[in-house]
Design a protein around this nucleic acid. Structure first.
Lengths: 210, 210
DNA sequence: TCAAATTTGTTGCAATTGCAACATATTTTT
DNA sequence: AAAAATATGTTGCAATTGCAACAAATTTGA
């Protein structure tokens, strides 16, 4: 599935009209800022127009999980959550620009213009892409050992790439929270993988050797 | 988010037109039948009109994972997978009726009628619901212990319910594959939860005691 | 630029989990 | 209704993982 953005195939003038029509809001966030969810309007969906963010959750046990890594054009929002317990938040990992749209307006509002159809189609596509990346996340999490989680994560990171090398997009501490495993145990296993010649590491650059 | 079906708000006569127009196919499957994915047309999305199915994957280690449990109105399909390795399949767990639609036609085709818009809106909603249930799945899988996985799974099963009792929708063997844990270890932990008074069990009916 | 904070690497030890191998119970098939 | 196949319950033991507690390296920010 090709890359796409919310406003693909829609002219700037029309974009402004659509934003007005759907009563959408563009908001900027600094790095580390909380792009709050679980708030006022339960039907907002957010779209990352620029920057990146993490969806994180703290367990009662004190463990942090990185539920999702959001990049440009990724969708997120309360609409997608059945959990009302307020323990999940979205934190900007770089300066962000986020577009919030009322999900109900998107659906209920009768479409009048070709551009409204186009917008809905684009969002349909972005939702499908979100599902793809959630499937990848589930694929990794269902792996039964730290080793398999790591190798599967590496393999996914290399999908659709020719090269056997890639760069981990977060710190090792964050990677452990993303894989939902203990950091020190992860470090230990990475060392084993290196010693056994499965991978080679240079900082955050990892090369699969098989 | 309320329940919805693909054809909500569309009259039968129009449904038949839409099916023809989008070149969609309705196919029936017996229990245990393979509702093949990873096949011919890479852009099909499937919609369970009747019945239920499991998306399963076998690891090279021999472990089976139930990736997803599909019920009436759930979507699935190759479009949502980046994994091209053919180790994932969809198996009917009861007699099924499945509608296959070409995802590209849905998007590329210019909308002419109110009904086409309605169809796309419905699918938009179903996609959002799919994301909700995938988020729940991820929530469970990120839990760090068997105990927490179980309790979280129970808690999610009771969300939006008044009662504290529910029925596990599959065998304990399947539940273990769904939680991605060892069956015997799961049985052991369930016994502990029972002994410590957290839950009570009657066959597949589980009651949370707190 | 120096100090403070955070991240990374490492290890012994304890707790949890997986594995194997059963017996028993239940379900399905003939 | 008997036999076969599957599912469930149980346990000892081994392997993996988590935890705690550091030192060293790196990054942040005052």
């Amino acid at each position: 599935m090709e890359k796409i953005t919310v406003f693909d195939g829609i002219e700037q003038k029309e974009i402004d009209n659509l934003i007005k029509r759907f009563d959408a809001k563009k908001i900027s966030f600094n790095k580390e800022a909380t792009i709050a969810i679980n708030i006022n309007n339960i039907n907002l969906i957010g779209i990352i127009l620029e920057g990146s963010a993490n969806v994180i959750r703290y367990e009662y046990s004190g463990n942090r999980s990185i539920v999702e890594k959001l990049n440009k054009n990724d969708l997120f929002g309360e609409v997608f959550t059945s959990d009302r317990s307020n323990d999940t938040s979205v934190i900007a990992t770089s300066p962000c620009e986020v577009l919030f749209i009322d999900y109900n307006k998107l659906i209920v509002d009768n479409k009048f213009s070709e551009y409204q159809n186009k917008l809905v189609d684009n969002i349909l596509k972005l939702l499908a892409l979100k599902i793809v990346s959630m499937n990848e996340r589930i694929e990794v999490l269902t792996k039964r050992s730290i080793r398999d989680k790591l190798l599967n994560y590496f393999e996914i990171s290399l999908r659709d790439k020719v090269s056997k090398t890639f760069t981990i997009p977060f710190s090792f501490t964050d990677l452990a929270d993303y894989l939902s495993i203990d950091r020190s145990a992860m470090t230990r296993e990475i060392k084993h993988l290196k010693d056994e010649g499965f991978i080679s590491i240079n900082g955050k650059r990892i090369t699969l050797m098989y």
